[in-house]
Amino acid sequence: MTTLENATIGDTTEVRRADGKRPPWMEKPNALTQTLKFIVLGVAVAVVIIPFWSVIATSLADQKTINDAGGGMVMWPKGVSFDAYHAVLSGGVVTRAVAISVGVTVVGTLLSLAATAGLAYWLSRPGAFGAKPVLMLVLGAVLFSPGLIPSYLVVKEFHLLDSLWSLILPVLVNAFNVIVMRAFFQELPKELFESAAIDGVGAVTTLTRIVLPLSKAVLAVIGLFYAVAYWNAFFNALLYIQSSDKWPMALVLRTYVVNQTTIGGDSAGEALPPQLPLQMAILVIAIVPILLVYPFLQRHFAKGVMIGAVKG
């Protein structure tokens, strides 16, 4: 069996075999391998980009283009028309739903990050009072779901039905996110906490002034998880929200695209014509906000997804 050696050159360490050659996986790939990689990556990109472009193109297509395509999706609109976006936004239903979803997403994400960071910090401190029983409860929440009926009864007993708080408070803390953030906090240098204790700094100040500034990567990842979950909140809204004027974007999208019915006013429940550009315009409005937020978190996301994968 061939053994490997570590050859240190300057500040770098290079892995070599006993015979002085590098392992096969460290060699430069040949032209065939690079071509295959390019083809695979190109296919993967096309699988992602083409459907999204088709949605945008269909939302901008006029009725003639849709008719020429047999009433289906188009890849390139012959005539660009913003009538679908005007029809969606002029009525106010989608605009109000977007505002509700933005409010729920922003408030919910901030509250969830605060609650998750506080709980994870408490569970990560050695010798914290009651940390072990609570950690067992958190681990149990990962494995077992409370169920639909108990969750509904809890929301009802707290008088949260038909309230936007029913989209935030029942899902305020995610057990998996707590475990991930706790693992990150445990990897921070112990000397930081010892220095803070010597200086007489309290736990809250240590968390806000020392821990959180060093945890931008995990906060970005967990914050993105929470934001996507709140923005796509559909099932909870379907269960807890009865008033259509309080529906978030995900529920309005379902009503327009799946049920093909209007919302509110005298036209509630009235069937809409199968206008594909109208449906695709609503879909674009629902997708774009998350796509706009992701680039600002990307530099932290790559580091954050590696949390706990490597132990130093």
Rank of each mutant, 00 (worst) to 15 (best):
I100N: 01
R96Y: 09
L164C: 03
V142F: 06
F38R: 15
L167F: 01
G70K: 07
V107G: 05
D83T: 01
L89I: 13
V80N: 08
S145L: 08
F38G: 15
A117F: 03
K156M: 12
M73A: 12
A57S: 05
A87R: 06
G127A: 13
T109K: 00
G72C: 08
I50F: 11
Y152Q: 03
S112G: 15
L111D: 02
P146Y: 07
P24W: 14
A114S: 13
G147T: 08
V106R: 03
S124P: 04
T33Q: 13
L41P: 14
L143E: 07
L135F: 11
V142I: 11
P133D: 14
D68I: 11
L143Q: 09
A57T: 03
V94R: 01
T95W: 12
L41E: 11
K37F: 13
P126C: 10
W76Y: 07
G92V: 10
G91K: 03
M73K: 07
I100Y: 00
V155R: 00
L123V: 04
N30H: 11
H159L: 12
A99Q: 10
K28S: 09
V104N: 00
V55Y: 01
L41Q: 12
G118V: 08
V74T: 00
D83A: 13
G130H: 12
Y152L: 11
E27Y: 07
H86K: 15
Y152E: 01
E157N: 13
A120G: 01
Y121I: 07
S81R: 06
A99I: 13
L32V: 14
L160E: 02
I50Y: 09
G91W: 05
G140R: 04
N67T: 10
G108A: 10
I39R: 13
D62H: 14
V154M: 09
L135D: 13
V154R: 01
F144P: 04
L167E: 00
A46V: 02
W165H: 04
I149Y: 06
M26C: 07
A141S: 13
W122E: 02
Y121F: 15
L113F: 08
G118T: 11
S163C: 06
A115C: 14
V55M: 11
I56G: 03
A128N: 03
V88W: 01
E27W: 06
G42S: 14
V94E: 00
L123F: 02
S124D: 04
T116N: 06
L160D: 01
V98F: 15
M75S: 13
Q34T: 12
V40L: 15
V93M: 02
N30E: 09
I50A: 08
L148V: 09
A141F: 07
T105V: 03
A69G: 04
V40G: 09
E157Y: 10
S81P: 00
G72T: 14
F82I: 12
V94G: 01
W25L: 09
A31C: 07
I149E: 03
M136A: 15
L153W: 12
